[in-house]
Amino acid sequence: MRASLRQRMIEVCQRKIAQKGEGVGVSFYAFFANRNDDPELLMEAATWWIQTQRLDHFEKARKIIALVEAMK
């Protein structure tokens, strides 16, 4: 997964935690605008989320941060 996507995922998860608390859940759609302006990047995130990690639709933001940071 490209570094820019990993960074975006961490930033979004941290922002969601700051806004809604430690137990907040996110889906991979949280990392994108409401319109599909970068289908390749969306598919990259979806592939990592669904096929590589086998995550549920919603997962705890802390879990996503830990998974992404383990990739570095």
Rank of each mutant, 00 (worst) to 15 (best):
M1D: 03
M1C: 10
R2K: 05
A3Y: 02
A3L: 06
S4T: 09
R6A: 01
R8E: 02
M9P: 01
V12F: 06
V12R: 05
V12N: 02
V12E: 03
C13H: 01
C13E: 02
R15I: 08
R15V: 13
R15E: 11
K16I: 12
A18D: 08
Q19V: 11
Q19L: 12
K20I: 07
K20F: 09
K20L: 09
K20R: 13
G21R: 07
G21S: 03
E22F: 09
G23I: 11
G23K: 14
G25S: 09
G25H: 04
G25F: 05
V26I: 06
F28G: 02
Y29W: 13
Y29D: 13
A30M: 13
A30N: 15
F31K: 06
F31T: 03
F32L: 14
N34V: 14
R35M: 12
R35C: 14
R35T: 15
R35E: 13
N36I: 08
N36Q: 15
D37H: 12
D37I: 15
D38R: 15
D38I: 15
D38S: 15
D38A: 14
D38N: 15
P39W: 04
P39N: 04
E40H: 12
L41Y: 05
L41F: 10
M43R: 13
E44S: 12
E44R: 10
A45K: 00
A45I: 00
A45S: 04
A46Y: 04
A46T: 05
T47E: 03
T47P: 03
W48G: 01
W48L: 07
W48C: 03
W48F: 11
W49K: 03
I50F: 06
I50V: 10
T52S: 11
Q53G: 11
Q53E: 14
Q53S: 11
R54Y: 06
D56A: 09
D56R: 07
H57W: 12
F58G: 04
F58Q: 08
F58I: 10
E59G: 01
K60W: 03
A61H: 00
R62D: 08
R62Q: 10
R62G: 05
K63H: 08
K63Y: 08
K63F: 07
K63T: 08
K63M: 09
I64A: 08
I65S: 07
A66G: 11
A66W: 08
L67T: 03
L67A: 06
E69M: 14
E69D: 15
A70C: 08
A70T: 09
A70M: 13
M71A: 12
M71C: 13
M71G: 13
K72T: 06
